[in-house]
Simulated assay, not measured.
Amino acid sequence: MREASLPKLSQARQELRRQQILQAAMRCFVRNGMGRTSVADITAESGLSAGSIYTHFASKAEIVQATAQDLLERRLTALAGFVGEARLPSPAQLLRHLADGISRDEARVGLQAWGEATTDPVMCGNVVATTDGMRDAIAAHCEVWLVAVKGHEASVARSRAAGLAAQLMAVYQGLIVRKALFGTTDAADETFIADAADRFA
């Protein structure tokens, strides 16, 4: 007698389940940390069965990597959306938007992901690739801004944009650390952001 086959989830339903798992993992990582969170914790938090969890992820390491990747990609999407909607924001406005757009919980998990990246080659590759993508997107915007607003020649703007993007990424990462630890940024950061954005302009 043939066993009845289980109905396959649609692609949309699979993605919803996957996001449900990642959101549950985020809550566990915020509450307990990545190191102290088990697959059983994530299973209980998600309300799904262990089988459902392992249908989407083969191990806790895969969940950790996917959670970090999802977080980083959402930051990159937010950056692209802001640049597309705003009327040529300055580099300082761009950085402020990014800093304001990340919650303390996201910052705390992001900081944990950076820690994991120091010992996990796969995590390191994901973090580096997405961070490089964000820096490149910032550089592309800064190049347009330097030509349109500051009147630089394209070749000069391209060179200065690369330096400015590296500076802005360093400040942004510092702001994530501050938000993760203290829950907010302070007034001194506003001056720091403006100085960093103007240095190469």
Rank of each mutant, 00 (worst) to 15 (best):
H97E: 07
S46E: 13
T55K: 13
P91Y: 01
S49L: 06
T67V: 03
L88T: 05
G81P: 10
S52Q: 14
V83Q: 09
E62H: 11
D70L: 05
A58N: 13
L95I: 00
S49C: 07
A80K: 14
R74I: 13
E73M: 11
L79T: 03
L48N: 10
Q65P: 02
H97D: 06
R87Q: 12
P91A: 04
I63Q: 05
L76G: 06
L88K: 06
G84F: 03
R96I: 06
A66G: 13
A86W: 02
A99W: 01
R87A: 14
S49V: 10
R87K: 14
A78Y: 02
F57N: 02
S52K: 06
I53R: 03
E45R: 14
V64A: 04
A58I: 11
S52L: 07
R104H: 03
L71D: 07
L76I: 13
Q65V: 12
G101D: 09
S59R: 06
L48E: 08
Q69D: 08
A80H: 12
G47Y: 09
A68V: 10
A68L: 04
T67I: 03
Q93R: 10
R75P: 01
L88F: 04
R74T: 14
P91C: 06
G84C: 02
A66F: 10
D70A: 05
G51I: 05
K60Y: 14
L71N: 09
R96H: 11
A80V: 12
G47F: 08
H56F: 09
E62T: 11
I53V: 12
R104S: 10
R87T: 10
T67P: 00
A68I: 07
S52D: 07
G51P: 01
T55W: 07
S103Y: 01
D70I: 00
E85R: 12
G84V: 04
E85K: 15
D100H: 07
S52A: 15
S103Q: 02
L98S: 04
Q69I: 00
H56V: 13
S46V: 10
G84Q: 11
L88P: 00
R75C: 11
K60A: 13
T67F: 00
S49G: 12
E62S: 09
L48K: 11
L95C: 00
R96D: 06
A61T: 12
R96V: 02
V83F: 09
V64G: 00
V64H: 02
A68Y: 00
S90M: 02
L98P: 01
G47I: 11
T67E: 00
S52V: 14
E45F: 08
Q69E: 06
H97Y: 13
G84A: 15
S90A: 12
L98E: 03
L98T: 00
A61M: 09
A92I: 04
A99F: 01
A78D: 14
L79D: 01
I53Y: 01
S46A: 15
I102P: 02
V83A: 05
D70R: 06
L72D: 07
R104T: 12
S49D: 08
I63A: 05
S49M: 08
I53P: 02
A86P: 05
G81I: 08
G47C: 10
A86R: 14
E45S: 11
S49F: 03
S90W: 04
